[in-house]
Protein backbone atom coordinates (compact mmCIF):
# COMPACT_ATOMS: atom_id res chain seq x y z
CA UNK A 1 0.00 0.00 0.00
CA UNK A 2 2.64 2.42 1.11
CA UNK A 3 4.97 1.48 -1.72
CA UNK A 4 2.12 2.05 -4.13
CA UNK A 5 1.55 5.48 -2.67
CA UNK A 6 5.20 6.45 -2.89
CA UNK A 7 5.42 5.19 -6.41
CA UNK A 8 2.34 7.13 -7.38
CA UNK A 9 3.64 10.33 -5.89
CA UNK A 10 7.02 9.81 -7.42
CA UNK A 11 5.47 9.42 -10.83
CA UNK A 12 3.27 12.45 -10.47
CA UNK A 13 5.85 14.92 -9.31
CA UNK A 14 9.39 14.37 -10.46
CA UNK A 15 11.33 17.41 -9.29
CA UNK A 16 14.34 18.18 -11.35
CA UNK A 17 17.63 19.88 -10.74
CA UNK A 18 19.27 21.44 -13.73
CA UNK A 19 23.02 21.19 -13.69
CA UNK A 20 25.39 22.64 -16.23
CA UNK A 21 28.69 20.79 -16.21
CA UNK A 22 30.38 22.79 -18.91
CA UNK A 23 27.76 23.05 -21.61
CA UNK A 24 27.57 25.76 -24.22
CA UNK A 25 24.32 27.28 -22.83
CA UNK A 26 22.25 26.16 -25.78
CA UNK A 27 21.11 23.02 -24.05
CA UNK A 28 20.51 25.00 -20.88
CA UNK A 29 18.26 27.56 -22.46
CA UNK A 30 16.36 24.80 -24.15
CA UNK A 31 15.83 23.12 -20.79
CA UNK A 32 14.61 26.41 -19.39
CA UNK A 33 12.48 26.98 -22.49
CA UNK A 34 10.75 23.71 -21.68
CA UNK A 35 9.41 25.40 -18.55
CA UNK A 36 7.88 28.34 -20.35
CA UNK A 37 4.35 28.65 -21.70
CA UNK A 38 4.88 27.07 -25.11
CA UNK A 39 6.11 23.74 -23.74
CA UNK A 40 5.12 23.94 -20.10
CA UNK A 41 6.51 20.86 -18.38
CA UNK A 42 4.69 21.76 -15.23
CA UNK A 43 1.71 19.95 -16.70
CA UNK A 44 3.45 16.73 -15.79
CA UNK A 45 4.17 17.86 -12.26
CA UNK A 46 7.77 18.55 -13.18
CA UNK A 47 9.21 21.37 -11.17
CA UNK A 48 12.64 22.93 -11.44
CA UNK A 49 14.31 23.02 -8.06
CA UNK A 50 17.21 25.08 -6.92
CA UNK A 51 19.05 22.65 -4.71
CA UNK A 52 20.02 19.02 -5.13
CA UNK A 53 18.50 18.19 -1.77
CA UNK A 54 14.99 18.71 -3.09
CA UNK A 55 15.42 17.00 -6.39
CA UNK A 56 14.63 13.53 -7.69
CA UNK A 57 16.08 13.87 -11.14
CA UNK A 58 19.33 15.55 -12.12
CA UNK A 59 19.23 16.94 -15.63
CA UNK A 60 22.82 17.29 -16.75
CA UNK A 61 23.86 19.32 -19.76
CA UNK A 62 27.32 19.52 -21.17
CA UNK A 63 30.45 17.43 -21.04
CA UNK A 64 32.01 16.87 -17.66
CA UNK A 65 34.93 19.27 -17.37
CA UNK A 66 37.81 18.44 -15.13
CA UNK A 67 36.99 21.16 -12.66
CA UNK A 68 33.34 20.14 -12.45
CA UNK A 69 34.02 16.45 -11.88
CA UNK A 70 34.27 16.55 -8.10
CA UNK A 71 31.38 18.96 -7.83
CA UNK A 72 29.28 16.70 -9.99
CA UNK A 73 29.95 13.75 -7.70
CA UNK A 74 29.21 15.88 -4.67
CA UNK A 75 25.90 17.04 -6.07
CA UNK A 76 25.03 13.48 -6.98
CA UNK A 77 25.70 12.41 -3.42
CA UNK A 78 23.64 15.24 -2.00
CA UNK A 79 20.57 14.20 -3.93
CA UNK A 80 18.34 11.96 -1.84
CA UNK A 81 17.60 8.42 -2.99
CA UNK A 82 16.07 7.31 -5.26
CA UNK A 83 17.79 9.54 -7.78
CA UNK A 84 17.93 9.52 -11.52
CA UNK A 85 20.17 11.22 -14.00
CA UNK A 86 19.19 12.41 -17.44
CA UNK A 87 22.02 13.30 -19.80
CA UNK A 88 20.76 16.05 -22.09
CA UNK A 89 22.49 16.80 -25.36
CA UNK A 90 25.26 15.28 -27.38
CA UNK A 91 27.82 16.74 -24.99
CA UNK A 92 26.44 14.98 -21.98
CA UNK A 93 26.31 11.75 -23.94
CA UNK A 94 29.79 11.70 -25.39
CA UNK A 95 31.44 15.11 -25.42
CA UNK A 96 30.20 16.32 -28.82
CA UNK A 97 32.67 18.71 -30.47
CA UNK A 98 34.71 18.99 -27.33
CA UNK A 99 35.67 15.33 -27.45
CA UNK A 100 39.42 15.27 -27.17
CA UNK A 101 39.85 18.67 -25.53
CA UNK A 102 42.22 18.57 -22.59
CA UNK A 103 39.83 19.80 -19.99
CA UNK A 104 36.92 17.55 -20.89
CA UNK A 105 36.57 14.11 -19.42
CA UNK A 106 33.85 12.98 -21.79
CA UNK A 107 30.19 12.28 -21.27
CA UNK A 108 28.46 12.50 -17.93
CA UNK A 109 28.43 8.71 -17.74
CA UNK A 110 32.19 8.74 -17.19
CA UNK A 111 31.53 10.27 -13.81
CA UNK A 112 28.11 9.26 -12.54
CA UNK A 113 25.59 6.63 -13.69
CA UNK A 114 23.05 7.86 -16.22
CA UNK A 115 19.49 6.57 -16.67
CA UNK A 116 18.25 8.33 -19.77
CA UNK A 117 20.12 9.88 -22.69
CA UNK A 118 18.48 12.62 -24.73
CA UNK A 119 20.28 13.25 -28.03
CA UNK A 120 20.45 16.50 -29.94
CA UNK A 121 22.75 19.45 -30.29
CA UNK A 122 21.02 21.27 -28.82
CA UNK A 123 18.10 19.17 -27.71
CA UNK A 124 14.68 20.50 -28.49
CA UNK A 125 12.47 21.25 -25.51
CA UNK A 126 10.07 18.60 -26.76
CA UNK A 127 12.88 16.09 -26.55
CA UNK A 128 13.60 17.06 -22.96
CA UNK A 129 9.97 16.44 -22.09
CA UNK A 130 10.05 13.16 -23.96
CA UNK A 131 13.13 12.11 -22.02
CA UNK A 132 11.50 12.82 -18.71
CA UNK A 133 8.36 10.95 -19.71
CA UNK A 134 10.46 7.97 -20.81
CA UNK A 135 12.10 8.00 -17.42
CA UNK A 136 8.69 7.95 -15.78
CA UNK A 137 7.70 4.96 -17.86
CA UNK A 138 10.87 3.24 -16.84
CA UNK A 139 9.97 3.85 -13.22
CA UNK A 140 6.53 2.38 -13.72
CA UNK A 141 7.81 -0.79 -15.28
Amino acid sequence: MLTKLTQWSRLKSPWILHLNTGACNACDIEVVAALTPRFDVERFGILLKATPRHADVIVCTGPATRQMKDRLIRIYEQTPDPKFVIAVGACAMSGCVYRGAYNVIGGIDQVIPVDVYVPGCPVRPDAVIDGVVKLLNKLKG
Partner: peptide, 22 residues
Protein backbone atom coordinates in the same frame (compact mmCIF):
# COMPACT_ATOMS: atom_id res chain seq x y z
CA UNK B 1 41.12 23.44 -12.85
CA UNK B 2 42.25 23.24 -9.23
CA UNK B 3 43.89 19.86 -9.68
CA UNK B 4 45.82 20.88 -12.79
CA UNK B 5 49.40 19.53 -12.64
CA UNK B 6 51.92 22.36 -12.34
CA UNK B 7 54.20 23.09 -15.23
CA UNK B 8 51.70 22.17 -17.93
CA UNK B 9 50.79 25.04 -20.19
CA UNK B 10 48.17 23.92 -22.69
CA UNK B 11 48.64 26.53 -25.37
CA UNK B 12 52.34 25.94 -25.85
CA UNK B 13 52.81 24.18 -29.14
CA UNK B 14 54.90 21.37 -27.72
CA UNK B 15 52.27 20.47 -25.17
CA UNK B 16 50.29 17.49 -26.36
CA UNK B 17 47.25 16.00 -24.80
CA UNK B 18 46.53 12.30 -24.70
CA UNK B 19 42.93 11.44 -24.13
CA UNK B 20 42.62 8.73 -21.50
CA UNK B 21 40.57 5.74 -22.67
CA UNK B 22 36.88 6.08 -21.96
Amino acid sequence: PDDWPAGNYPLRKDWKYERPPE
